[in-house]
Design a protein around this nucleic acid. Structure first.
Lengths: 234, 234
DNA sequence: CGTTAAATTGAGGCCACTCAAGTTGTGTGG
DNA sequence: CCACACAACTTGAGTGGCCTCAATTTAACG
């Protein structure tokens, strides 16, 4: 065990969590802690690809941008998620902190070197990458084919599932209350619609009695099952 | 060397191309050739995840489907591409042959076993998966934020690049002629728009003198550079 | 309490969808 | 070789959902 990893908050969930002490030492020797405040961009699309790492705390967004300023969030990163792209010379997506965040970064080249000498680490990253690929593809259906109502509903359900990790009420469809980790604008960027449309859909769901809003961030879902019927109710 | 791989058409480009003879033998012992005709579905979304493999010839589509029938193509597979999802119990996307196709399949479990004992194979798959993830994310921007004109234009450019692997005229923006590998309906499914819209956009580009259509499948791009200006001409 | 960002609400317009008809292309059998 | 059938494609008219622009209202924070 070593100093850096011993006190790591996501030790058991992160990529490195399943490593042996020897492997951990190898990784640790090239790792560095870093705090970034909300709004800070960690990697710029188009820049030289120097870093990757684990997110210890906070939320990051990965975004693709068109030359005229249009933006699409292609992924959100939560605590224990791995970020960056090994084996690429150039950064493809801008990564920005949505909240204050804590990172554990590695120089890309050094990380690749460790990867290639520690089979288990490589296998775990492969599994995570395959999972991320599946999620990205699943989101394509939402982005391209779902209505605004369905998009907002599915994001609410996804956030509810992530916010209530206890699984207490989520399982039996009971009431769930949680705070949205994203602003309306960020939700719009994730869903590929505008701020106004997000707002209108939330108002609509509220009017239909499917959700309750107190403040602009706190959401209460009365009946998960009823909310789910909003999605592809053919 | 062995019989199955010796005559493989994509020997040098596929995942297995960079393997040693010993590794190749390991893979080959669990592999099987399989021919599928156009329209055949290779894997059904929701089914037990039994297979993965390499595409030797033809084109496959991976599609996500909503319960009401809406479909989104989340990826196209060409010769030498790997397909399937190791480490998942269930198939997430339906894979269907768009043309007659030739496959080299492995039982998923056996493939995973080979993966874990052959570091180089695992590393190559990781690199491919990371690349596929990037492509999927890049497509999100197109699906969510681009206009119909931009979507059709970008698909044409992508196909032109793939159709003319010689790079002869592609590099200096000169004229390129090729056959569309997809029907209008398939293009619509890839782009998240309707058949009619695809057709109208092609007609529009033709009217603008940017492309020429002879038959419904053959496309000629007079000036690649001019076509590119159709994308995000702010 | 004042300032500023975030969110809501409204009015109007446009792009892409829907529905529908007609045309072209392709392959098959007479 | 032509006639037919069927699928793919094109074109048109009309509609609706989401965007744009704009004005408030509400929330967040010093």
């Amino acid at each position: 065990m070593n100093n850096l990893c011993a006190g790591c908050a996501v030790r058991d969930q992160a990529l490195c969590g399943s490593l042996s002490d020897e492997e951990l030492t190898a990784l640790n020797s090239v790792g560095r802690r870093r705090h970034v405040s909300a709004g800070t961009t960690v990697m710029w699309s188009g820049a030289e690809n120097l870093l990757c790492g684990n997110l210890l705390d906070g939320i990051l967004k990965m975004a693709a941008a068109a030359s005229d300023g249009r933006e699409q969030i292609v992924g959100l990163l939560y605590a224990a998620d791995f970020f960056g792209q090994p084996y690429a010379d150039e950064v493809d997506f801008t990564i920005t902190a949505l909240t204050d965040a804590e990172l554990c970064t590695f120089p890309r080249g050094a990380f690749e070197h460790v990867l290639e000498h520690h089979v288990r680490l490589e296998n775990l990253l492969l599994q995570r990458t395959l999972k991320a690929l599946n999620e990205a593809r699943g989101r394509m259906l939402t982005l391209a084919r779902m209505s605004a109502t369905e998009k907002v509903t599915s994001l609410l359900l996804e956030m509810a599932a992530r916010a209530g990790p206890c699984g207490c009420s989520a399982s039996h469809g009971g009431p769930v209350t949680f705070d949205l980790p994203l602003t309306r604008g960020q939700m719009a960027d994730v869903l590929g619609i505008t701020i106004e449309t997000v707002s209108r859909q939330l108002t609509r769901l509220k009017g239909a009695g499917l959700i309750a809003l107190s403040g602009s961030r706190t959401v209460a879902i009365a009946d998960l099952g009823a909310l789910k019927t909003q999605i592809s109710a053919a």
